[in-house]
């Protein structure tokens, strides 16, 4: 459970694991996560009904708003969010604390 222990460092995203289910966005107490996705049809040979899949377009955590409670990590059904160790990402401007999927996924490989 080390990934679930809040150290007030940074929350990383694994975009491939995210299904755009919106659970984290809705559970976040400080409304700091925003998520955009679209639905794509999946063509499957012999399928009885049309199938669709959610495709993640944008995922942003506003670290100027985040209260580091870790509820998003706890509630993610697909383990697409996890704590990582870095604390050194201050910004000279307010908008610089808004980190998108590319920024957030860079934290992922650094290990917990």
């Amino acid at each position: 459970m080390s990934d679930s222990t809040p150290q007030r460092n940074v929350i990383a995203l694994l975009p491939e694991a995210c299904t755009s289910c919106m659970v984290c966005v809705r559970e976040c107490p400080s409304w700091c996560i925003s998520l955009e996705s679209h639905v794509e049809a999946v063509s499957e040979e012999g399928a009885r009904r049309p199938r669709t899949v959610n495709v993640l377009d944008e995922f942003t955590i506003d670290y100027g708003l985040c209260m580091y409670c870790g509820i998003c990590i706890e509630t993610c059904p697909f383990d697409a969010l996890a704590w990582r160790d870095s604390f050194d990402y201050s910004s000279g401007d307010r908008q610089g604390l808004r980190q998108d999927a590319v920024d957030l996924s860079r934290w992922w490989p650094t290990g917990s």
Binding site: Y68, F87, Y89, S90, R94, L97
Partner: peptide, 11 residues
């Protein structure tokens, strides 16, 4: 504002 340090609270 010279810098915004993220955290709640920051370390």
């Amino acid at each position: 504002i010279a810098s915004y340090v993220p955290g709640c609270p920051p370390r």
